[in-house]
Every structure is written in structure tokens, then in C-alpha cells.
Design a protein around this nucleic acid. Structure first.
Length: 508
RNA sequence: CGGGGUGUGGCGCAGUCCGGUAGCGCACCUGCUUUGGGAGCAGGGAGUCGGAGGUUCGAAUCCUCUCACCCCGACCA
């Protein structure tokens, strides 16, 4: 195995960004402009494109295939924890949203409202769902009568619309796709347990599938979901040092149950309000995945989520060689087809070098190069996308080599992401140091906070950093790995006693 | 809503200051030679210059208005 020399051409020798039909090159480097780098990857890897409607995006086949992989894995995890899928409608009566005071305050400003249908003004305007708590709990009120109906555990995959002021492909768009779970329980303890269980599911998905380490914990009131009692989240580290909220799980208490009369009769024939939860992750995860792992050559995908695991690139000089090489590839690829998601790129109009670059840009984890010399030696060359390390494999070792490389890549992507995060995480005790630190680069900073919203607000205004998460205590039966142990300190803003450090960062 | 930027073949751009009837690269099509890290030559097709109005013999270019999108900030997953 050997590393390849840096292939990046000097600007003069490099043609400007190329046409849309085939892959383009000339990705802005992360160091030069992280935001542009991100957009270059999304557009050039053909994950998404801008739509004619401001703030909306088209998810292209490459991006959608990735979403389907995520869906499949998450869907299984959600079902394995006892939930069933259903589908609730896009339109919600305007009056529904108004029933929970905090909820309407949080969402009304960003709602799209339909006022005309069938050419006539509607009696009651319809909101396009920004989230489905209200309509789902309206139905729950109808369905739940007895403690025997509980718990009710439903999930839906859907689109939602939020009229955002500023949008960014995948990270924040007017319409996005997500899953939203909605549950109803007989006791507050059960609801809390469910809220945390699903947060754990999200953590497992982030770590094991996305190869993305996350901090988990509780949101402050400022960042809490409108209408929730408590909001928990997983927070991921992006390569520019910013945090991205990658999943949320809300304990709704009985707020919505009271607003929508979701009640049941218990064993003593007493009517009681249900205790509810909701939790979701969205296509935003695709943005997270990009900013967690990709490099200046393009997309880097963890093998478990990559729509294609392996691309085979044949190499030939003459028609005669072409025939021999392709025949050999047929032989070796045959048995691999059932085992891996693979593609043989036998297009004639591109040279191998072009294909290498294109598949690297698109993030295929492994490439198998097969040329006349490999036919001769009865082997092949396996190249990893993340390290670009090459390995010569004998014919009999190819499958084992692929297995090993996929596993190693999945593991090492996580390890590298963890190292990057650790390298940019600091623990700070006083405000002067905190401000100095965040004036330069972005960091994840553990620093004390007294618990007052005013203090959080002040620091946010002065430094742009917000509290991403308040870590769990071991005693809560749920820990936040990587968080410093509880330690008395003085709040950054007011100097009052602080029970423990919370995670501050600039966020997406 | 503020600040900045961009609208010219499919894509990326030049041309705009200084008006003269549209050009380059890539992509696409054809042919030949090529193919182990983004091939070469030859030929070909493709653009009412974002829109409207105005100035002028003549407008991509000057003037007025307008629309759209992108980036940065204030709201948010």
C-alpha cells in the first residue's frame, strides 16, 4: 500500500468547473471556503440541485439513494423498538396549531397556509404541516380510550414545510423529508424512558451507520422544541468546528394531551391525560454526513450507508485487451454481485483516470482497478476512497480484501471523526479565555453555566456560541460519553455557582 | 429585512468602463488515433445576452424600472 501524490492541479492548469452532464471538478477547498466546499460537493456529486422555488431543493438520485439507505436502517431500528409506521395528512386545520400556546408561538411564523382550494376561498385555512403533533394527537384523542390502548407507538415518514428565512441545501430547506415518531403513554416515567430510548437509537444510528460521533444531552429552554417539556438531542461535530443538531427527542409531558384531550381510563376507572413523546431525524443528516467525513476530492461515505460499495474500473489499450479484461471482470465480479453493491464502469468514452476521479467525487468507498497486468497475474488492485491506499490482491483474496477494507473504512472514519472532534474540543473555566478561543477558529467548548437563560443569551450575543447540550449525569442512568465529569465552577456570564460544564459551540 | 454578488449556447466564463450586430473553455454529435490518475487531432450542431421601457443610425454594452438566484448576517431542525 502506498499513498498517492496529491493530484490537485495548480489553478492555471485546471480547467474551470465543467459541464453538468458528467462529473465536474474544481471543488473549493475546505480551507479556502468551507461553505462553498460544502455546496460544491452537494452539486457536483449530484446529491441535490436548486429548484425553481426559492429555498426548495431537488434531491437527485445520488442523494435520494443515500436517503433510502438511511431510511432503511432507521426504519428497522424504529420497528425493532416496537413502533409501527402510519401516514397522516399534509394539511392541518389552522385551529389545531393554535391549541397549544407555546407550539403555535414557535411555529406560526414559519408556516405555509393554504387559503384557496378548488377555486374558492376556504372556510378555514389549512396549514401545510411544519410538524404533525397537532393532527396526530387529534387522532390519538379519538383512538385512545383505555389504559389497554397504551402505549401507542407510531412513526411516520413524511415531508414537512417550514418557511425559513435563509436556506442551505440539505441543512435547512423550506421543504424537507424526515421521520417523526409520536407516542402516548400511561405514565410520565414511561414517556421519559421512551424519549431517552429513541435518543439512544439516534446515537446508535449516528455512530454505527454514519460513523459520526455525537454528544447527547438535554437542550436548554432556549433551544427546546416549542410545546415540549424537555428536548434531548444528539450533536455532531462538523469539520469546520461547528455543531450540528442531528436528531431530537422530545418529552412532551401532558402538554399536548391537555390541549387535544388525549385521555384514557385507568384501572381505577379514573380519566387521565396521556404522557407523550415525539422524535425525529431529517434529510439534514445528509448534510451532516458530508461535513463530517468528506474531503477536498469530494464526497466520502461510510460503507454501510454508501449506495454503491464498490466500483470496478477496467483498463485496456486495445479492443483485444478490452475483451480480455472485461471477460476477466465478469468472472471475478460474478460472485461479488450478490454480496456487494457494486458497479462495473465499462464506459468507453472515459479514460480510467477520469473514472477514478469521478467515483471519488461521488464517494464510492472502494474501487477495484482491473487491467491487462491484473489479468496476467490473476489479481486486481483495490483502492480505498478515504485514504486512497492501494492494495494488490490475488484473485482468491478479492472478496476477503473487500470485506476487510469496508470494515476498516467504516471503523476508521469514525475514529478520524472522533479525533477531529477531540482536537477541537476545549474545557474552559472563565469567560475571557472562552472569548479569546472563539475569536479564531470554531471549537466545542465545555464551560460552566448557571442555568439562567439570560446568561446563555448574553454569551450567544457576544460570541455567537450557543449551548448545544447539557450533558446527562451518570445518576440519570444515561451518560454523555466524552463530557467532562461534573465539577463546580462559575457561570461564564454571571459568575454564579454552576453545577457542571455544558457544551458550547457555534451551530448550524 | 440589511450587506455583497451574479444573470450571455447544456455547464463555467470573457466581452460592459470606451456602443458597431456575440466569443472562449468544457460538455454534446461524427471520424480517426488513444486508455494503469481527469487524452489528441479534424469537422459539426447549439445563444431573441434575466425581463420591460428608454437614448441612439445602431445596445450584451449607456439610462430608468423590474424579476430571479446565490453568498454573508438577523429567525430556525
Amino acid at each position: 500500500m502506498r499513498p498517492l501524490p496529491d493530484r490537485a492541479a495548480p489553478p492555471a492548469a485546471r480547467s474551470p468547473a465543467k459541464g453538468a452532464a458528467m462529473s465536474e471538478y474544481g471543488i473549493t477547498s475546505r480551507a479556502k471556503d468551507f461553505s462553498q466546499w460544502y455546496l460544491d460537493i452537494v452539486l457536483q456529486a449530484e446529491l441535490a440541485d436548486y429548484s425553481p422555488v426559492r429555498g426548495c431543493m431537488v434531491i437527485r438520485p445520488n442523494g435520494y439513494a443515500l436517503w433510502e439507505r438511511m431510511q432503511r436502517a432507521l426504519d428497522e431500528m424504529i420497528k425493532a423498538t416496537g413502533h409501527r409506521n402510519a401516514y397522516f395528512p399534509l394539511f392541518i386545520p389552522e385551529s389545531f396549531l393554535k391549541k397549544e400556546a407555546e407550539h403555535v408561538e414557535g411555529f406560526a411564523p414559519e408556516c405555509a397556509v393554504v387559503t384557496i382550494g378548488g377555486g374558492a376561498r376556504l372556510e378555514e385555512p389549512l396549514m401545510v404541516r411544519p410538524t404533525s403533533e397537532t393532527i396526530i394527537y387529534h387522532m390519538y384523542a379519538k383512538w385512545i380510550k383505555s389504559y389497554r390502548d397504551l402505549p401507542l407507538l407510531i412513526n411516520q415518514w413524511a415531508n414537512v414545510v417550514r418557511w425559513e428565512m435563509r436556506t442551505r441545501l440539505f441543512l435547512r430547506t423550506t421543504e424537507f423529508l424526515w421521520q417523526e415518531g409520536h407516542t402516548a403513554h400511561a405514565t410520565p416515567e414511561e414517556a421519559e424512558e421512551e424519549t431517552r430510548r429513541m435518543l439512544g437509537v439516534y446515537r446508535d444510528f449516528a455512530e454505527q451507520w454514519m460513523a459520526m460521533p455525537v454528544y447527547l444531552g438535554r437542550k436548554t429552554d432556549r433551544e427546546k422544541f416549542a410545546g415540549a417539556l424537555r428536548t434531548y438531542s444528539i450533536e455532531a461535530f462538523m469539520q469546520d468546528g461547528r455543531a450540528l443538531q442531528a436528531g431530537t427527542s422530545h418529552n412532551l409531558g401532558d402538554n399536548f394531551a391537555r390541549a387535544f384531550e388525549v385521555k384514557f381510563q385507568d384501572e381505577q376507572q379514573q380519566w387521565r391525560y396521556c404522557w407523550q413523546t415525539s422524535w425525529g431525524v431529517s434529510t439534514r443528516l445528509i448534510g451532516a454526513l458530508i461535513m463530517a467525513h468528506s474531503d477536498d476530492q469530494g464526497l466520502v461515505l461510510p460503507p454501510r450507508l454508501a449506495p454503491l460499495e464498490l466500483v470496478v474500473v477496467p483498463i485496456w489499450r486495445s479492443d483485444e485487451e478490452r475483451g480480455r479484461v472485461l471477460a476477466y471482470i465478469d468472472e471475478i465480479a460474478g460472485p461479488l454481485r450478490g454480496r456487494y453493491r457494486l458497479h462495473v464502469d465499462d464506459r468507453e468514452q472515459f479514460k480510467p483516470g477520469w473514472k477514478y476521479s469521478e467515483w471519488e467525487l461521488k464517494g464510492v468507498p472502494l474501487r477495484l482497478e482491473v487491467g491487462p497486468r491484473d489479468v496476467e497475474k490473476q489479481g486486481a488492485v483495490l483502492v480505498r476512497r478515504d485514504t486512497r491506499a492501494k492494495a494488490m490482491l490475488a484473485r482468491g483474496e478479492i472478496a476477503a480484501g473487500i470485506d476487510a477494507a469496508l470494515a476498516a473504512m467504516q471503523r476508521e472514519l469514525f475514529e478520524r471523526a472522533l479525533e477531529r472532534r477531540q482536537g477541537r474540543t476545549r474545557q474552559v473555566g472563565d469567560y475571557a479565555e472562552f472569548r479569546r478561543l472563539l475569536e479564531g477558529d470554531n471549537y466545542f467548548v465545555w464551560a460552566p453555566w448557571c442555568g439562567a437563560s439570560a446568561c446563555e443569551e448574553r454569551v450567544a450575543e457576544e460570541t455567537k456560541a450557543t449551548i448545544r447540550t447539557v450533558p446527562f449525569e451518570e445518576s440519570q442512568g444515561f451518560s454523555t460519553p466524552g463530557a467532562p465529569p461534573p465539577e463546580k465552577g462559575s457561570c461564564l456570564a454571571c459568575g454564579e455557582p454552576s453545577p457542571r460544564a455544558v457544551l458550547w459551540a457555534k451551530a448550524y
